[in-house]
């Protein structure tokens, strides 16, 4: 059973709809106890980083920390990925889970001497896909996924796939049972469905 955390993030409906389409059993919840019992946890999200402040208030942050320490599978989507880091300059007062090191930062306004638009909206390629990534299994180098965001997570050894826009950033992150995608798998056609199926089948 997958616990899908409801913290009033915009894409909850889409993520739930897509997981349901793929045959996943789910419980949409705000209850930390449900999160503690779940084998898998999905944290959706799109919009402002400060929305994740509710996770702390609901006691979800602590529940997630305990669950992942016990080996529950975790997938963060978009802001849900960013929350896995220490925080974001978008809302410095709101802290993330800190499972991965580093802060999420806004795209630069200029890159390589040219103006860079933000938000980064559209279909961009997945590159440097890590061979041992379970989430990216069956996804080929250069395949396209849909992004819409203005803040991004830094590259690290845990990066499972990167995407180039104003320099490379983390498109997918994965360390053992904790994973995240900055793109929207629920909006990324067959490639996105594959990523979600990979997670469901873990």
């Amino acid at each position: 059973m997958i616990a899908v955390i409801d913290y009033k993030a915009g894409n909850l409906t889409s993520v739930v709809k897509t997981l349901g389409y793929l045959g996943a059993e789910m419980l949409v919840t705000q209850d930390p106890e449900v999160v503690r019992r779940a084998e898998k946890i999905v944290l959706p999200g799109v919009g402002h980083f400060r929305a994740t402040a509710l996770l702390e208030e609901l006691g979800i942050t602590e529940a997630v920390r305990e669950s992942v320490a016990k080996g529950a599978w975790f997938l963060g989507v978009c802001v849900g990925l960013q929350w896995l880091y220490e925080g974001s300059t978008e809302a410095p007062e709101t802290r993330g889970l800190g499972h991965f090191g580093g802060e999420c930062e806004r795209f630069p306004t200029v890159f390589g001497g040219e103006a860079l638009k933000a938000p980064h909206v559209g279909w961009n390629s997945l590159e440097e896909i890590r061979g041992d990534s379970r989430l990216m299994r069956g996804i080929d180098e250069g395949e396209f996924v849909y992004y819409t965001h203005s803040w991004r997570a830094p590259l690290s050894a845990d990066t499972a796939a990167s995407t180039p826009y104003g320099g490379a950033f983390t498109g997918a992150v994965e360390r053992e049972n904790v994973m995240g995608v900055q793109f929207h798998p629920e909006k990324s056609a067959s490639v996105g469905l594959r990523v979600l199926r990979n997670f469901i089948e873990l």
Partner: peptide, 8 residues
Amino acid sequence: TAAALFVP
């Protein structure tokens, strides 16, 4: 329309 549409 949204039910089985997996693009924006």
